[in-house]
């Protein structure tokens, strides 16, 4: 700044110490409160924008009658975004959501699954075989609800791949 006034304050600060007089104090106070108000406003705006509506989707979903899933079959259940398999040991639920970036995997004709977004391959047990996915497809907890008379799944509860539901 070339147009600054040559005042005693500046002399003082140029000598290496700062003298806090009434004018510089009020100056500092004014700048400080503007900065504080601005910071608070930005912080609150970020908090406002990070708001999440209360209540979340239930992770427990009905899958219908067990009879819909005959032995040696695979069925995609859209509402629950998973595959229900039925092998010789019983029923199980395999998540269709790709652990890489969340697309839905598709069954291959000769067994296993492929993610159409980035070509990750999985075997029938959900193990990642190739492609960018490093985690397996999750097996999800499955049970028969006597009261409702239908199969239920909890999408938030993974189980070991070997777990089967026998009815």
């Amino acid at each position: 700044m070339t147009d600054e006034q040559h005042t005693p304050e500046h002399e003082a600060s140029s000598k290496g110490f700062r003298r806090l007089n009434r004018r510089s104090f009020l100056n500092l106070l004014a700048k400080g409160s503007v900065a504080a108000a601005f910071t608070a406003a930005v912080a609150q705006t970020i908090r406002f924008l990070s708001y999440k509506p209360p209540g979340s989707d239930s992770t427990i979903l009905p899958l219908g009658q067990p009879e819909n899933y005959p032995r040696r079959s695979w069925n995609y259940v859209a509402e629950a975004r998973l595959y229900v398999g039925h092998d010789d040991n019983g029923l199980f639920a395999l998540d269709a959501v790709c652990p890489h970036l969340g697309c839905l995997v598709e069954p291959l004709e000769d067994g296993g699954f492929m993610c159409p977004c980035h070509d990750s391959l999985f075997d029938e047990e959900g193990r990642a075989l190739s492609g960018p996915a490093t985690q397996p497809l999750q097996h999800l907890y499955l049970w028969f609800d006597e009261e409702q008379g239908q199969l239920m799944v909890d999408r938030s509860e993974p189980v070991e791949p070997a777990v089967r539901l026998v009815i």
């Binding site: 859209a78 839905l104 159409p116």
Partner: peptide
């Protein structure tokens, strides 16, 4: 958009 539908080629 249907986040539950299988899509061949996203």
């Amino acid at each position: 958009a249907d986040p539950t539908a299988l899509v061949a080629e996203p």
